[in-house]
Design a protein around this nucleic acid. Structure first.
Lengths: 138, 138
DNA sequence: CTTGATGCTCTAGTGACTAGAGGTCCTACA
DNA sequence: TGTAGGACCTCTAGTCACTAGAGCATCAAG
């Protein structure tokens, strides 16, 4: 049996976050001891580990809820899980592509500047005027 | 003179968002007409354009506030603006690197699956067990 | 002069937590 | 057995950057 603090240390998920997951119904309510403190078993540990790993991979709590509801069902429907994972992958790829465009534009903008103290900051004017942009972000 | 709707159309920033920017002090309060409706001049248009462009580049509203307070000061301190822009660039680069690791792991996980309906979804077990991971994300 | 779009303020909700107040409980040590 | 201090409890409110909706007022075109 683990306390919430032990669970937190073991998984790297903060204590208030664990309580939050319970509040929104992502983690099942654990048993309590005589003093009303949460006591978790191995299943609680596993569930939180699953959530932590999926969060690290960028899945939303909503996605995780769906995947957890599928997990453990007789004859798990892998195709739904697969669909969620592929959607997540393509979302991540899209974010990377967008961020790369932004990085290029930011690089261009910061290079405009000679760190001068003169009255016309090129960075500011580059930010103010989209027409100066190379890319079509946004 | 522009109405809030015209400003919205011209900049691509939604009407409630413009009002929100005003509320948090990012946009100066514009004049009002006899019927208490906001009326903007070219300066309002420019300010909103600046915000839009900077937001598209991923700057926080807090960063934008600082940059706008610098803009227009006598002898703008370009070095501070430059610092903010470089910090933003390295934050974007870090996010890209992290997302690329995630994409690799997600790709690996989704490839585990043959879309079967059997009782052991490999995607789920890969998500549940970090030890199966190639990378050390998170 | 009417109609429908646009505008106004205000409140509340989103996601995924985080912070703090004010109290209770558990554990280790003397 | 007493006590100190850390861990735990609930509850409320705040974060960021909006978004949605209610219930009205105003504006512009026909």
């Amino acid at each position: 049996m683990f306390s919430i603090g032990q669970l937190s240390k073991a998984t790297g998920v903060k204590v208030p976050t664990i309580r939050y997951y319970e509040e929104i119904g992502l983690l099942p309510q654990p048993g309590r001891n005589a003093g009303n403190q949460r006591r978790y078993g191995q299943d609680g540990m596993d569930a939180l580990g699953f959530i932590k790993h999926a969060r690290d991979l960028g899945f939303s709590l909503e996605d995780i809820k769906v995947m957890m509801s599928i997990e453990g069902q007789l004859g798990e429907d892998c195709s739904e899980v697969h669909r969620i994972a592929e959607a997540q992958l393509s979302a991540v790829r899209a974010r990377i592509a967008r961020l790369e465009r932004l990085a290029g534009e930011l690089e261009r903008i910061t290079h405009l500047c000679g760190h001068g103290q003169g009255g016309d900051c090129k960075v500011l004017s580059a930010l103010g005027d989209h027409a100066q942009c190379g890319s079509d972000h946004g």
